[in-house]
Design a protein around this nucleic acid. Structure first.
Lengths: 337, 337
DNA sequence: CTGAAAGCGCTAACAT
DNA sequence: ATGTTAGCGCTTTCAG
């Protein structure tokens, strides 16, 4: 692989000189200004190519007041890092931003300390915008957004705000999962919820509820056990369900991690999946395909989450105000339903 | 949470005026120049605080020729994204760089196309340095490095180069795993290798080999099955091993993913783990703790990988040339040994 | 120890 | 359609 010549210090001025035009013209060509004579455009481009010229971001920023940088902020308090999710989303963001000539700046920082560096670097045009991941406390983002910084959040903000966000359609996905269980012949469908204080937890429960309601029934509260999205909590919730003695022949679990835990207790009790109890999860995490029985689940478009967030940001940078978006989920039937 | 006042356009000049000093002095204070009278330092700092001033990166870059930006390059051809690894490493990098006042620029791009934007943006002082993840082809990095761009690679470069890198000590980890098997009483230890064309694959095999050699024996080639790090390949390799009929009472598998696959075929054959065959993996991936039997494995310090890479980069930016580093691994004994 | 002044490389009026 | 000319906000000689 050969690299273009190292552009130690080729400047726009030199290009101008070589091409025999003024710096302003070079700048115009570089920025795609229409009204430049064809032949000049060519000679400028030739010079650019020959010298391997790349405009200086710093100089451009200074002149335009735009940095071309988008902060991608990860609340490092979050424990969710073990989740492959992050790598995929941030990668998608970066790739998509690049198409709009924007760069992703990765900032991992605790979001709770009020006056951290983050605040000042965000609130003082060091970046053209910021993408946040779902947060417990939106007020920080709300503030920034009010100050005029383009913001988009990945996930559903807790306190309904006007900040544009993109999320998977948790409610629809949960409904789809539950309806799938119904289709497979389940009569008494239990659920293990996630952390209900998170929008994903709440919405997934609501999806389950709406599917049950669609049957013309109310949900039997004895059939809902509360977990917190952790593997451990899935185990406990399933034990609870079993202990209650209320019969059920299927269970919608709010995420795969808990579903895996739930399955293990089902196995321990020698309850056949899916014959005696069908189970379906949510997320389609990698481990869902690894166990002795591959888990049926609801797949979310993680990459789509990132690329959508990025394109929304690109729009905002151009002054538009994109509507929030919900991404469709997909049913993945494997061996547990 | 309250934010500092929005610093729309506070400039160094304004600070100078308010503090009653020259811009040059403000600049000196900002950059920690020693020889400024104490009282002036104070009045400058006060003004800075009151106005919520943050220096403009762009202006500073233009003046100094440094951007404060470090590219973190992910070869998006890599399929490994599903690996939680990325999120953790990049986050650690970002956090560590911040301590040196550097920012991580995330660039996901295919590294094979010769003249992509990446090349030019890297080779033309748009960034102060670049961190790469292990690559199939080092020539690109080698080129950049030769041109004087500070580079560090996470993982062991394939073609031994002089480029500083940081990696977990794969060989030592594999040896530790194998020796652990020996300690637990294993007599005939098989291994399932990873992709031998990757340094991790090769080194882990060598670690296994050296442990066997430590016993005063040569490795029995009938006991080594080749996988490629995928779950599927772990399954196949174990079947091969079993089919061969050569007895073994333990197996070191080059990564957890394959180990999980291998365990499933052991279970299918009703072979008791660890009584009949002990198994140990490598990586300590999350799923290792999820199955019906928790996998013993070698844990790598993923976060350390990122933070070490970042501090090495910080050193390089300051003109030093750090030595490459190997990170120690840790044995995690669970239920399979 | 401090200030004046000259850029860093680019863009954006403003002329022409 | 193109060139001239000011800056953008900071650092850094160079004087003093």
């Amino acid at each position: 692989m050969t690299l273009p010549p190292m552009n130690q210090n080729v400047t726009l001025a030199e290009i101008a000189e070589i091409a025999g035009v003024s710096p302003a013209t070079v700048s115009r060509v570089l920025n795609g200004d229409e009204r430049v004579a064809e032949h000049r455009v060519e000679s400028v481009n030739r010079a650019v190519r020959e010298l391997g010229y790349t405009p200086s971001r710093a100089a451009r920023s200074l002149a335009t007041g735009k940095t071309g940088l988008i902060a991608t902020i990860i609340d490092s308090n979050l424990e969710v890092f073990t989740d492959p999710f992050w790598g995929i989303v941030t990668t998608a963001i970066s790739r998509t931003l690049q198409q709009s000539n924007l760069q992703a700046l990765l900032m991992a920082t605790p979001l709770n300390k009020a006056d951290n560096m983050l605040a000042s670097s965000l609130s003082s045009q060091q970046v053209d915008g910021a993408i946040f991941f779902q947060l417990h406390d939106d007020s920080f983002v709300a503030e920034l957004y009010k100050q005029g910084l383009p913001c988009v959040v990945v996930g559903t903000p807790k306190n309904a705000t006007s900040i544009p966000f993109v999320d998977v359609d948790n409610a629809a996905g949960a409904r789809m999962a539950t309806e799938h269980l119904i289709t497979r012949g389940a009569k008494n469908i239990a659920t293990i919820t996630g952390d209900m204080s998170l929008s994903a937890g709440k919405l997934r429960y609501e999806g389950y509820e709406s599917a049950i309601n669609g049957l013309g029934r109310a949900v039997d509260t004895r059939l809902v056990a509360h977990g917190n999205f952790s593997h451990e909590s899935g185990i406990e919730a399933m034990e609870e369900l079993l202990d209650s003695g209320v019969p059920f022949d299927a269970v919608f679990v709010a995420n795969d991690l808990m579903a895996l835990g739930a399955m293990s207790v089902l196995h321990d009790h020698e309850i056949k999946i899916p014959e005696q109890v069908a189970v379906i999860g949510f997320d389609d995490m990698f481990a869902a395909q690894l166990g002795r029985q591959k888990l049926s689940t609801i797949r979310q478009d993680i990459e789509g989450l990132g690329s959508t967030a990025a394109s929304m940001m690109a729009e905002m940078v151009e002054g538009r105000r994109p509507a929030s978006r919900m991404l469709q989920t997909e049913l993945v039937q494997r061996e547990t339903t």
